[in-house]
Design a protein around this nucleic acid. Structure first.
Length: 610
DNA sequence: GCGGATCAC
DNA sequence: TATGGTGATCCGC
């Protein structure tokens, strides 16, 4: 049934997710204000009837249908699968993951507070205490005063004005932010010359060595770091201290703004931390995955364990391994500078007032092609595949691509290819045109860049000439990737389906330590051996004890570990059947309890009403 | 290799 | 009065 033009009174069930969707991605990730639903209502009110709104409604509906199919899949799978077997497999994976846990490195995530807004404050101190936003059509940042009204980054300016009529709107000054970013990063680099600059306002550091050498605790080190940043730049930053990047990032949000949070480095504390954490806080879990997880009863990371069988059965949709890692708070602890080789694409795109005229559209395309050529020339890239992107009047997005044998660098080629891809699609009413080049070749490779990079250090971004554009509060550079960090063997294959999980258990456990510079395995061992790394103890616990009988197991011999665990599992099952175990309920239940000493921190998943 | 979708910032 | 830009990844085909 199609709901009759819900413009007046949307169906409650569907409008809930739609209202949230309209509020934008950042409203959910950041801390909520008192009455988010009121704010969401105002936003929806202001959006109503627009093409943007209609498109969001359509996407929301499609997601609802997708979830419906998902639940059907789950239903049939639950009937047909051997649930005990699935659960056992999950248990194996959990054991294996626990054995890979590495808490030997102190990772810090630094996140500047309302970066663009606070930069503007330096240039215009009168704004202090006032609600303001940075950006023209769409806000890149909102001051903390503005946030109290529900104003968020990514929000359309006219909507923000509705939420906060007093709101002051500033235009963006990329140069200012770039300069400040460099200052901040230069300070941070004193604590880890190999730090990862994740964006213009975020960085990851490994301060293990610094703390050892200067005989300070992590907390002291980070306090000092933050104090010096504030002294030297007048900007405040927040920090998270944890044994891996995912946790550090989540922690940096905990005491924002101008605060830090230190997560204890033991397995149990980490699991206690994760159990009540909303899945949406986890990097990589966005609005869609959040809703899909919610549909199977998972809203916190603790719920992942409760619903692990469902997640395993829906591995394709959720990624079992990623979910289990998340539940356990396991992720990569590798921190190293961004390198040019890692770049995969370069592109440019522009939004404009919707155009239907062919020549005017082509003119936009040409402008984009020119921009892209300039960027490619300055940064030294060529590529073999050109992808055209266009967004229609109604916000639908399409891409069309073409590959070549030769290297593309010039505007004429970019334009001609874009034109060739676009013309067959016309006539259309278009509001955005973009071009992107992939299959890159590094034109700066065998030049002097190697030496330059050696001397310039991690804060030096790309071209020394012209700064790269900063299009929003956040910027270029890669980051995330927690997933492929803990894979058992990184070679090509996914290692994601259940079958693969089972297979992987029989493969050698050693994660191909020093081999293969392909980079796909950023576990701690793959870090290039530097003077720094050499001093560190790589204390991956190669010993764990069996959760059932307590026997010490050597995790380097996976086959033996599995044989032993299988043995204990079956023994447990037999005892249970004989009623020898005190808590002999359903087999699955008992098995869960058997692992609970390290898996199930609080047996009650969702009871805590904080 | 291509196109759609999702995600981060 | 009318919702951004850059880059990455994954899936299905």
């Amino acid at each position: 049934m199609v709901e009759a033009s819900s413009d007046t009174a949307p169906t409650p069930s569907q409008s809930k997710s739609l209202l949230k969707r309209l509020a934008g991605p950042s409203s959910a990730k950041a801390g909520l204000t008192n009455d988010q639903s009121d704010i969401n209502r105002i936003i929806a009110e202001a959006s109503k009837g627009s093409k943007y709104y209609e498109n969001e409604k359509k996407k929301d509906k499609e997601l609802t249908e997708r979830i419906k199919r998902l639940l059907q899949t789950q239903n049939t799978a639950m009937k047909e699968a051997d649930l005990a077997q699935v659960e056992s497999t999950v248990s194996h994976v959990l054991i294996e993951l626990e054995s890979l846990r590495d808490t030997s490195q102190i990772i810090v995530h630094i996140d500047a507070d309302a970066f663009f807004a606070n930069c503007e404050l330096l240039y215009n101190p009168d704004l202090k205490g006032k609600p303001f936003g940075v950006g023209k059509g769409v806000l890149t940042t909102a001051s903390y005063e503005a946030r109290k009204f529900g104003v968020r980054s990514g929000m359309a300016a006219f909507i923000a004005k509705k939420l906060c009529p007093e709101l002051i709107l500033l235009s963006i000054h990329p140069q200012r932010y770039s300069d400040m970013s460099k200052k901040v990063m230069a300070i941070l680099a004193r604590y880890d010359p190999d730090m990862l600059v994740a964006s213009c306002d975020e960085a990851y550091l490994n301060i293990t060595e610094y703390c050892e050498q200067h005989n300070v605790t992590a907390e002291e080190c980070v306090s000092e770091m933050r104090r010096i940043v504030q002294e030297e730049t007048k900007l405040t930053v927040s920090a998270g201290i944890a044994p891996n990047r995912m946790l550090a990032k989540i922690c940096s949000d905990k005491n924002k703004p101008n605060g830090q949070f230190h997560l204890p480095f033991n397995s149990q504390a980490i699991k206690d931390f994760m159990v009540d954490l909303p899945v949406r806080k986890v990097p990589g879990i966005g609005r869609v995955l959040e809703r899909m997880l919610e549909s199977i009863g998972v809203t916190t990371c603790g719920d992942i364990f409760t619903h692990r069988v469902s997640i395993a059965l829906l591995d394709k949709e959720f990624g079992l391994r990623f979910m289990l890692q998340t539940y356990m708070g396991i992720a990569s602890n590798v921190v190293r500078p961004y390198s040019r080789e890692e770049r995969k694409s370069i592109g440019a795109e522009r939004t404009f007032h919707p155009l239907a005229d062919k020549d005017k559209i082509l003119q936009k395309l040409e402008e984009v092609a020119e921009e892209l050529e300039n960027d490619m020339t300055e940064t030294g890239w060529a590529g073999r595949t050109v992808t055209l992107k266009y967004k229609l009047d109604d916000y639908q997005v399409f891409t069309r691509a073409k590959s070549f044998e030769r290297w593309i660098t010039k505007k004429v080629d970019l334009f001609a290819t874009g034109k060739e891809l676009l013309l067959p699609e016309l006539p259309l009413k278009i509001r955005l045109i973009g071009l992107r080049v992939t299959k890159l070749k590094d034109l700066k490779l065998s030049t002097d860049s190697g030496i330059k990079r050696y001397f310039s250090g991690p804060t030096e971004q790309t071209s020394p000439r012209k700064k790269r554009k900063i299009s929003s509060e956040n910027n270029q550079d890669v980051d995330y990737n927690w997933q492929d960090c803990i894979l058992l063997d990184g070679d090509e294959e996914d290692c994601k389906t259940l079958e693969d999980e089972l297979l992987s258990l029989t493969k050698p456990a050693s994660p191909r330590a020093s081999a293969a510079p392909e980079g796909a395995v950023p576990t701690h061992e793959s870090k290039p051996v530097s003077a720094k790394a050499a001093g560190k103890k790589r204390s991956i616990e190669s010993q764990i004890s069996c959760p059932l009988c307590g026997k010490e197991l050597n995790t380097n011999d996976n086959q033996k570990v599995n044989a032993h665990i299988d043995f204990c599992l079956s023994r447990e099952a037999i005892q249970e059947a004989d009623g020898q175990l005190p808590d002999a309920k359903a087999k699955s239940k008992s098995q869960a309890n058997a692992w609970s000493w390290f898996l199930d921190p609080k047996t009650k998943p969702r009871s805590k009403g904080k």
